[in-house]
């Protein structure tokens, strides 16, 4: 399992460099549409490691075709310059009746399957690249339908799933989606996310995907129990941290992940070559 860190804005540049230099991570995940005004060649030279590209605001379920075509044209420049390990996006809602959510919305997996599938097919076609779609940290009970939805989506569109393990933990805690229901999705997936979560301020408590705290014991237990389903040649896991960014805390979590998964094949190979 290769480990990565999410690089969303310039403030964490030095820290990401240090994580790479000290061998805590093997690749970086760019929140790529934050960098659409940065020259692709500058971005390609930014880190001496492989990269993944994570899309935040394509809004491909909502945007019109010309907007998506223009977005994809710019994305393409970065795909060509950076030759990423993967390109990923989100299945979620950014707005309702033209009004933006500030806490993004989950789709209705049973009634929206066909329309989402068609959008996924069209979006991959416009980008000209396979895309891995991330699962949502479900709160409401409709989230129990997510595993079957993603399984079918992969089968019918050729898309991948970027499986966020702690989002699945939130969904498990909030609406009881069993970890076991994700087994096939995890087995098929190559690319993963993991992060901390926290509880809501008011009861009945729900778990929120916040990217601001240490990995929780149940997240680590989930990874341990499904270790062999997650780990496979070429697999990646991005540790996401967007708030309370403390180097030592991040390294402590990355060490837990290293202990759990061991050194990746690729790095062992590198080390053997340089020895």
């Amino acid at each position: 399992m290769r480990l990565g860190f999410n690089f969303t804005l310039g403030d964490t540049y030095d820290m990401a460099q240090r994580l790479i230099a000290e061998g805590h991570i093997d690749y970086c995940e760019f929140l790529i549409d934050n960098f659409f005004c940065v020259d692709p060649d500058e971005l390609a030279k930014a880190f001496d490691c492989p990269v993944g590209l994570h899309i935040m605001y394509s809004k491909f379920l909502e945007a019109d075709r010309p907007t998506l075509v223009d977005f994809a044209a710019r994305l393409r420049d970065y795909i060509d310059a950076l030759n990423p390990i993967y390109v990923s996006d989100h299945i979620l809602r950014f707005s309702h009746e033209g009004r933006a959510f500030f806490h993004l919305g989950e789709i209705d997996y049973s009634t929206e399957y066909e329309s989402v599938r068609d959008r996924v097919v069209a979006w991959q076609d416009i980008v000209g690249h396979r895309i891995h779609f991330e699962n949502y940290p479900s709160i409401m009970d409709g989230g129990r339908e997510a595993p079957a939805f993603f399984e079918r989506l992969m089968k019918e569109t050729g898309a991948g799933v970027l499986f966020d393990a702690s989002n699945a933990v939130c969904a498990h805690r909030n609406c009881g989606t069993p970890f076991e229901a994700w087994r096939n999705v995890i087995a098929e997936a190559q690319h993963f996310h993991v992060a901390g979560y926290r509880h809501s301020l008011v009861e009945p408590f729900i778990s929120l995907d916040t990217h601001a705290e240490a990995l929780a014991p149940d997240t680590l237990a989930f990874l341990r129990d499904f270790r062999s389903v997650f780990d496979k040649p070429g697999a990646t896991m991005t540790y996401e941290r967007d708030d309370r960014i403390e180097f030592d805390d991040i390294v402590a979590d990355l060490k837990l992940l290293r202990d759990l998964f061991g050194q990746p094949e690729e790095r062992r190979h590198d080390l053997a070559l340089s020895a």
Binding site: S138, M140, G143
Partner: peptide, 14 residues
């Protein structure tokens, strides 16, 4: 109705 997140969309900003 509150089965899905979608059932709550209008309330998410109200």
């Amino acid at each position: 109705p509150s089965r899905t997140d979608r059932d709550l969309y209008p309330a998410l900003m109200s």
